[in-house]
């Protein structure tokens, strides 16, 4: 993790579904189990890396279970795999368990909801570069926007296990409390300001919640919550690092804050991609070239998805 880590031994693997739990109206967590070669390869899966999941052959839920806004797209045949990161990875003897946090947004994720224990799914991975931890950092700030929670939950786990001296604080934002992709504890969320989310609390990590409409925690953008918090911080910027995952607009603001406060910052970018293995060339991310005004397109799949925020042209 101290070095920038790249995917090695990527390939096509099959995983068994262990569970598929509904966390909120649109949020689910899919539990997978890898055996054999897959167990070995995915045991080294780093937070921020991703996989490409094939659900083209998975059945749709019954008509009454399809949300109204997805009725039109639900009948569309799924062709391409879909990229997902893991929110948790546990390697045990001969088995590796991984969890995918997902939100139902279209024909593929709608199909995913019908996966049940014992089903088998095809997965390409591990793909891309995960987050890395530069030396001499004392405090890590995890900034989550909505569905960006997954890889940062995984990162939180790795911090707890491998970096016991690192102080870690999570900031989680969404438009409304319903759009926070965590196990429903709405009463608690709405009542407390300095609320601690179970997903991070289990690693001993404090978390702050922000909602645009004020339905839970800080009323406003998660980036404003972060700025306010940093305003009270006494630690020099160079001793901190920010990790961001969420909508691009949020990442752009996180990058601005990091630049202003002279804090190193890594962001996990998202792009439409067909393959995840550099051949389709669709997931271009515009990046600055050091010492020049030129920009280049890097590929989210293999050059990222985690980039240093100062590199990305938002």
């Amino acid at each position: 993790m101290s070095e920038k880590c790249s995917a090695a031994n990527k390939g096509v693997f099959s995983a068994a579904v262990r569970a598929n739990k509904q966390l909120g109206q649109r949020f689910y967590q899919l539990g997978l189990e890898f055996s054999g070669a897959g167990a070995e390869v995915f045991a080294n899966f780093k937070p921020g890396q991703f996989v490409e999941l094939d659900v083209s052959g998975t059945a749709l839920p019954p008509a009454e279970a399809i949300p109204e806004d997805l009725v039109d797209v639900s009948g569309r045949k799924v062709l391409l795999r879909r990229p997902f990161s893991f929110c948790d990875v546990t390697a045990k003897k001969n088995k590796t368990f991984a969890e995918i946090l997902y939100c139902v947004v279209g024909p593929a994720t709608l199909r995913m909801t019908t996966l049940t224990a014992g089903d088998s799914v095809s997965i390409i991975g591990p793909l891309g570069n995960g987050f890395w931890v530069p030396e001499s950092k004392k405090r890590a700030l995890l900034v989550v926007g909505g569905m960006g929670a997954g890889p940062l939950e995984h990162l939180a786990k790795v911090f707890t296990a491998d970096y016991p001296d690192m102080e870690v604080i999570a900031f989680a934002g969404a438009k409304t409390v319903e759009e926070l992709p965590f196990e429903a504890r709405l009463d608690e969320i709405s009542q407390q300001l300095g609320f601690s989310l179970g997903e991070f609390a289990k690693y001993g990590i404090e978390s702050l919640v922000a909602t645009d409409d004020g339905s839970a925690g800080f009323a406003g953008l998660v980036t404003d919550c972060l700025s306010e918090w940093l305003g009270k911080s006494d630690l020099a910027g160079e001793n901190m690092i920010i990790y961001g995952c969420g909508p691009e607009q949020m990442l752009a603001q996180v990058a601005e804050i990091a630049k202003d406060k002279k804090i190193d910052c890594q962001v996990s970018m998202e792009r439409r991609m067909a393959c995840g293995i550099r051949v389709c060339q669709s997931c271009a991310v515009e990046c600055r070239v050091a010492g020049s005004n030129e920009t280049v397109y890097k590929l989210c799949c293999e050059d990222g998805p985690v980039f240093e925020s100062r590199e990305v042209v938002f």
Binding site: K77, L80, R271, R272, S282, A284, V285, Y297
Partner: peptide, 19 residues
């Protein structure tokens, strides 16, 4: 450099690309 993104979109049993 190629085109700006989005460069692909899935369609019914197909996809569009503009790399």
């Amino acid at each position: 450099k190629g085109n700006a993104t989005p460069r692909i979109v899935e369609t019914d049993s197909g996809m569009l690309n503009a790399i």
